[in-house]
Nucleic acid binder design. Structure first.
Lengths: 162, 162
DNA sequence: CAAAACTCACTAACATATTAACCAATCAGC
DNA sequence: GCTGATTGGTTAATATGTTAGTGAGTTTTG
């Protein structure tokens, strides 16, 4: 028989679900152009900021550095971005859109906006506003100090026989 | 120069960010026990439902079927779940916790709850309530008909020279 | 009853996530 | 100027996400 149920709803899981419920309306548009979610996030961000360094992309697009290395390599290989070492600091890199990807964004962007409008209408603009409001609150508050509970001694559950 | 900026904020991306802001407080607990996020989601759900079929786990835990195959294989290999073919229908499978994983949930679950309480206090219980409320609204509304915009003819951007 | 359609889990191939470790370039301090 | 610490990007190894397809088992239909 199962042990006692967890008393709290799974909030992170709820975010995952909500995100998927929204994204499923955009995914077909993005994949139609042969892009992945992450590639589109990067293109969109680059279009807005003009040029970015990898660590900035990591921060803005929520992609971890090791993942980004591969994503940028593939994007560079198919001519969606250029990578150029920064003259003053040979460690750093500058990533830019290509003429080709600028055209792509110009064609894809309006479709995303149009789909947004449809969704906004379906959900009701007030709900959208409330969402933005609460999410901003959440992300702002999270910066504050949240203590971490104490963890018990480590047990290697994976290799226990019992 | 960049084309015109997209007029809408990226709502799915906001969910991604919010989820991460929350999850980062739970991840250390989960990994401390040698589990992955998905493994814990499955253990937690199994603990609540007692036994589940793979497609039910996919639905409840938001894991796609091909991913689940691997996750369950690994979990079975280290003795966290059992998989048993259903007698009446040889296509179907029943997944259950083991005594070992029941103990694990009994030890891990309360820690998750405790961390939840800390976060709830930090964010303020009203904010949490509003969050649940809006998320439920969102997910409920999403079931309604949201039309998909028409897509232009397919272009193979990846293999274009220009 | 037999063929077609369907369901379920799985495999395959590729992209991304996650953690740890690596390495060259830069910087801090002496 | 040299050593030690730091930064920025990368590689490696493993786990999961994503899409398409497979194959056995079951249901539907003629």
């Amino acid at each position: 028989m199962p042990s006692k149920k967890l008393a709290y709803r799974n909030l992170p899981h709820l975010f995952l679900k909500a995100r998927e419920e929204l994204l499923c309306h955009f995914r077909p548009i993005i994949t139609h152009f042969g892009l992945t979610e992450q590639q589109w996030r990067i293109l969109r961000t680059l279009d807005e900021k003009n040029e970015l360094e990898p660590r900035e992309i990591c921060e803005l697009c929520h992609i971890l550095s090791p993942s980004l290395t591969g994503v940028l390599s593939r994007m560079e290989a198919i001519g969606l971005v250029t990578r150029q070492r920064m003259p003053g600091d040979q460690r750093r890199v500058i990533v830019r859109l290509t003429p080709k990807s600028e055209k792509l964004v110009a064609e894809l962007g309006p479709l995303i906006v149009a789909q947004y409008k449809i969704i906004e209408q379906a959900l009701g603009p007030e709900l959208i506003k409330q969402l933005y409001d609460i999410m901003d609150q959440l992300i702002a508050t999270e910066k504050g100090p949240i203590t971490r509970i104490a963890l018990p001694e480590k047990k290697d559950w994976a290799n226990m026989t019992d």
